[in-house]
Amino acid sequence: MENKYRCEWCGGEDVLEEKGNVYWELPDGTRAITIKEVPGINCRKCGMEYQEEHVINAIEDQLMLIDSKSLSDTVTYEELLNIPKILKRNYFRF
């Protein structure tokens, strides 16, 4: 089966889709949280581990749309995306 991904850093094709932990500063800058089981890419050629833009945007948008003050210090990606929104959309994304 042909791999649909190429590393965004080195262009290598030996990449794996994996889930991992990321550390994210809340939009108000008061603290950082750990988000577990976040979809990501791991390049076996250059060693870069990263999240694709659509995953980053999903996290950023959700953190802008929820009451982030009530978040615990650790949350899974799925739990984060399932938190009810208090705003309809992220008005800072154009």
Score class of each variant (00 low, 15 high):
residue 5 Y to C: 01
residue 7 C to T: 05
residue 7 C to Y: 03
residue 8 E to Q: 10
residue 9 W to D: 06
residue 10 C to L: 07
residue 10 C to R: 03
residue 10 C to Y: 01
residue 11 G to D: 08
residue 11 G to K: 08
residue 12 G to S: 09
residue 13 E to W: 06
residue 14 D to N: 15
residue 14 D to S: 12
residue 14 D to F: 09
residue 15 V to Y: 01
residue 15 V to I: 11
residue 16 L to C: 02
residue 16 L to V: 08
residue 17 E to R: 14
residue 17 E to D: 10
residue 17 E to Q: 15
residue 18 E to Q: 11
residue 18 E to P: 01
residue 18 E to T: 13
residue 19 K to P: 01
residue 20 G to K: 02
residue 20 G to L: 06
residue 21 N to A: 14
residue 21 N to K: 15
residue 22 V to N: 01
residue 22 V to A: 05
residue 23 Y to F: 14
residue 24 W to T: 11
residue 26 L to W: 03
residue 27 P to N: 10
residue 29 G to D: 10
residue 30 T to Y: 04
residue 31 R to A: 08
residue 32 A to N: 11
residue 33 I to R: 07
residue 34 T to K: 14
residue 35 I to D: 02
residue 35 I to N: 00
residue 36 K to L: 11
residue 37 E to M: 06
residue 37 E to C: 05
residue 37 E to R: 06
residue 38 V to N: 02
residue 40 G to F: 02
residue 40 G to D: 02
residue 43 C to T: 00
residue 44 R to E: 10
residue 44 R to S: 05
residue 44 R to T: 08
residue 45 K to M: 07
residue 45 K to G: 09
residue 46 C to G: 09
residue 46 C to E: 13
residue 47 G to Y: 00
residue 47 G to F: 00
residue 47 G to V: 00
residue 47 G to D: 03
residue 49 E to D: 06
residue 50 Y to F: 11
residue 50 Y to A: 00
residue 50 Y to V: 04
residue 50 Y to E: 07
residue 51 Q to P: 00
residue 51 Q to C: 09
residue 51 Q to M: 13
residue 54 H to T: 12
residue 55 V to F: 09
residue 56 I to N: 07
residue 56 I to M: 10
residue 56 I to R: 05
residue 57 N to M: 12
residue 58 A to G: 08
residue 58 A to T: 07
residue 59 I to K: 02
residue 59 I to W: 03
